[in-house]
Structures are given as structure tokens and as C-alpha cells.
Amino acid sequence: MIAAVEADIAAIQARRAARVNLPPPTLSKTIIQPAKGWRAVDFGELWRYRELVVFLAWRDIAVRYKQTALGASWALIQPFLMMVVFSTFFGKFSGSSAGGVPYPLYVFAGLLPWMFFASTVAGAGNSVIGSERLITKVYFPRLAIPFAVAGWAAVDLAVASTLLGAMMAWYGVAPGAGLLLMPVWFALIALTGLGVGVGLAALNVAYRDFRYVIPFLVQLWMFATPSIYMQADGLPTRGLVHAALSLNPMTPLVAAFRSSALGTPIPFWATAVAAMAAPVVFILGCLYFRKVEGEFADIV
């Protein structure tokens, strides 16, 4: 019996020794110092916080769909009503068909990507101001807040797409192989929208009256994107207006989205330019945000 006890003691001592000799776990070091000037976007950190971005997006979606009595149908009603308005007023001028496609369908397919863009821009723009309680109490990469907006805007887009599908079936229009490019257009529009939205979010914190500028800006932008509601041949091909319109990356992107959905040819060059502009807009927006984000908690 004594031998057994001794064996037990030896085992316990061996376990203890093993634990003591374990190397201490390496601890992450955080360095806090004044922020000066431009700072790079820390994608590594954002990736580590990816679950948080998802949670924030999920929170917004859950709250939206729980709160409104209309719930999910709001994502359908808005574009539908807009389509009705456009069809009534513009349908006459553009003719009853546009590029071989019935006008209501034409404009609805253009409204969907636009509303995704507009929601992302306006949502992201106001997101930081709206998260004052979070920002002043906890640390996490602040970019997570506007990024999460793309989440619920995408859900709205998905919901509205079902209606698009139904309309296409109604009118007997089938998508072509271009449908495979949809994820590309979605990504490009998301990048552009987030780039602008993130930049606006930073401006919104820095200047307290900026929040009134945002809806106006978005509205103006819609008019500057005529591809939503009319064919390109109705527009001037030269001069100041033309120059201003060609600078708008959303014009070709909306057209590309619609073309992919409805099986009509995709305008190549303009889309390629927009494709290159999108990541640039995104990076610029994020860089500006990063420059200012250190002071958010003080100002907001």
C-alpha cells in the first residue's frame, strides 16, 4: 500500500513539475501612442474582428426586420413604388420599351443596384454617428461599423431580387450567361458604396451639420446616374454634362448589373473604368476614415 501511495505522490509531483516547466504563453503586446497623420488600413485586424462585423450586420438586419410592421416587405415595396413612379412619368418619354426590354422591368433592374448603393452610402455615412455609445466605450476597429452596413443593404438587395425574378418571369425575359458576372458587379458596387460611405462617415463625425448634406448628396447622385431610368442615347455625348456623367462610376455599374440580369449586352469600356475606380474609391475612403478615427470618441 505504501508503494502505491508513493507512486501517487511521484505522479502528482511529475505533473506539477511539468506544469512549472511549461514556457509562459506568449502574450500579445499592445502599444498605445499618439496617432499622427495618415495611417494604413489594418486589414489583418479587421480580419480578426470579422465575427464582429458579421454580428453588427446581423444585429441591424434583425432589428430592421423585427421593428417595422412591414418587415421584409419594405425591401420590396420601396423599389416597386419607385418603379411605378418612373414608369408613369418616364416610361412615356423613353418609349414603352428600352433596348427591347419592357420599361418597368428596365427601370426596376436599374433601381435594385442603385438602392443597394444608396443604402450603403447613406447607412455607412450615418453609422458612426449612430454608434456613439459603442465608440466611446469599447475598442474595436471602427471600420467594422460602416462595413456592417453593406450586410443589411445586401440582404435588402437579395429580397428585392426575388421580385425582380418574378417580374422577369412575368415578362418572359431570361438572363444570359452574363448572370455569372453578378457577384463581380455586386462587389464593385459594394466597394464604391463603402468607399464613399466610409468617407462620409468620417466627415459626419468631424462636422456636426454634415448629416443633413448626405441625403441631398445621394439624391443628386441618383439624377447623375441616368442609366437607372433611361437609355444612354438620350444623353449628350460631349461637353460639361457628359464629362460630369462619365466620372460617375455608378452609371456603368448599374447598366452592367441590369445587363447581366436581363441578358442584354454589357458596355465594356465604361465598366472596365468603373471596375478600376471602385477599389481606389474604397481605399481612399478608408484611409481618410483611419486618419480621423482616433478622435472619434472625443468628438462624437
Binding site: K29, I31, I32, Q33, P34, T136, V138, Y139, G294, E295
Partner: peptide, 13 residues
């Protein structure tokens, strides 16, 4: 890390 310092430095492990 809710706000940034104006001067100085802190290191946390």
C-alpha cells in the same frame, strides 16, 4: 484604446 493620447506611450501585455 477608445481614444488616442496626445503625448506619451503605453505598453500593455
Amino acid at each position: 484604446r477608445v481614444t488616442v493620447p496626445t503625448r506619451g506611450r503605453a505598453e500593455l501585455s
